[in-house]
Amino acid sequence: MPTMPADAAVRAAPQAPERRWRRRHVVAAVLVVGWLLIGVLGPFLAPYDPDRTSLTADSVPPFPPGPEHLFGTDQLGRDLLSRLLHGLRTSLLVALAIRLLTMLLGVAVGLAAAEVPPFAGRVLIRVADVFLALPPLLVALTITAVLGPSLPTVTLAVVAIGWPEVARLTYAEARRLRATDYVEAARALGGTRLQVVGRHLLPALAPQLAVAFSVGLPGAIMYEAGLSFFGLGVQPPDASLGTLIAEGRSFVVPAPWMLVVPVAALAVVVVSLNIAGDLLVPPDPRRRLRLL
């Protein structure tokens, strides 16, 4: 077999020298937790009020980077560094919420599909397939149009397009585990279905679910940025990486820093979270993130 299915990858990992395996996990955890910390603490480091404008009839921003404004200002004279730090928080926290909810819904559907009678299970998985066939961006845009632009809406929209993949993964793993001896034994010892799921199946799945959670983080950030770019996420004057990029886009000629700063921040976050994901599980082409 030339490719490594996701489950095989995780099972294979412990076969590597134990210490190296641990180190990879530690580095990955540091990357993920580090970014989350920056997200939470960043705003406290912001030198200015991110919403404070300085545009008047006599003083017309955007001002380039300098000692006063490290990353320059936007067209309303707001400090870009402060906006970036606040925007990063929004983006990271939304990404976190997206992944948590996606996992919750995906795992619930996946486990349900594995535990209900086979026919019903197949129907549930087909529902996931239907969602996978829909163009993600258009569906997300339509959902935000239905619910009105806001952060919770964007979170829901991205969850709606992300859960099927988690459901399929959970379903496959749960079915594999069900066939293993110890789950069969637990069942034979008289555990109810819920007990077996709660005490045995979920704990056995936990490491992989944790991995799936982290692997999806960069994608969630990209999606949030994408939808916010369309003005569907965080509402002005609050910022996120997506809204900063959108604002910078039209000023790329007179004020390139307005675009370069948030794009660079996005690239750094996404690259480092991707690396964290790769450290946890070798990349699998079949599980490529669906791009917007």
Binding site: M222, G226, L227, S228, F229, F230, G242, S250, L289, L291
Partner: peptide, 8 residues
């Protein structure tokens, strides 16, 4: 990966 920027 692409945030879908639009234009103006």
């Amino acid at each position: 990966m692409t945030p879908m920027p639009s234009t103006n």
